[in-house]
């Protein structure tokens, strides 16, 4: 029994350095997630600023309409479809484009829509008296946002932003649809070589789970820190 498992292990991970599919896949997954999160945060921040400026002042009407369209489309379609469209339609003729770059763009663009709503709720959660206090001191709209509203909003949403990172980490597992060798795809390649599904896929699952547990722990610690420094 033990011998059988050991053979399977060797066959799945040691022979032909198959573990490298998993290791390289993990690196790719982390790369895509990391850069997509950055794009998502920048994009989400900009969209949230436009949206809440429109809500508060009635300005930026056209931009606001564009943002709403973006949010509706992104949140109304599956991320896999978005990934496929970006790869095969938008970059359809640019065959030499890096798949990692495409995945970063697709997941970043996707994440931006969710981050935007996180930021927006954070901005809205800051008491309106804060805004009035800023304006009454003579700060203009942008200064009030920058010095008074945003720091508070950011603090409010930091845990939610970290959770978005965790969600994204798992979502990138569909990267295989454009034949990008991420963690999931790496495990799947081993399966197709060894005809053993259990071990490589279990390994993949355990790695995702471990990462999610670690990040969730970190978020919890962060949340507690923020609450204890809640001034």
């Amino acid at each position: 029994m033990f011998q059988e498992w050991q053979d399977k292990f060797v066959n799945n991970f040691i022979t032909d350095d198959r573990w490298k599919y998993i290791a390289d896949g993990l690196v790719t997954t982390l790369q895509v997630t990391f850069f997509a999160v950055i794009i998502g945060i920048v994009l989400g921040f900009l969209v949230a600023v436009v949206r809440s400026t429109y809500d508060k002042t009635g300005k930026l009407g056209i931009l606001n309409a564009l943002c709403k369209l973006y949010l509706t489309v992104i949140r109304g379609t599956p991320v896999v479809v978005q990934l496929l469209i970006i790869y095969f339609v938008i970059f359809g003729s640019a065959r030499d484009i890096s798949k990692v770059a495409v995945a970063v763009m697709a997941f970043g663009f996707n994440s931006g829509a969710y981050v935007a709503e996180i930021f927006r709720s954070g901005i809205m959660s800051v008491d309106s008296g804060q805004f009035e206090a800023g304006r009454s001191l003579g700060f203009n709209y942008v200064q009030t946002m920058r010095y008074i509203i945003m720091p508070q909003a950011f603090k409010n949403v930091l845990p939610a932003l970290c959770n978005e990172f965790i969600v994204l980490l798992k979502e990138t597992s569909v990267s295989g649809y454009i034949a990008l060798q991420d963690l999931t795809k790496g495990g799947d390649i081993i399966r197709s070589r060894t005809y053993d599904a259990l071990m490589p896929l279990l390994a993949v699952a355990v790695i995702y789970l471990t990462m999610v547990i670690i990040f969730t722990k970190l978020v919890n610690i962060l949340e507690r820190r923020l609450r204890s420094s809640d001034h």
Binding site: D127, G129, Q130, E132, A133, R135, S136, L137, G138, F139, N140, I148, P151, Q152, K155, H231
Partner: peptide
């Protein structure tokens, strides 16, 4: 208006100090 507001202090019922 921002220039003029600098010269008009305002105090609110709920203080509105900046908590951060």
């Amino acid at each position: 208006i921002n220039k003029h507001r600098q010269k008009m202090g305002m105090v609110f019922q709920h203080f509105n100090l900046f908590p951060h």
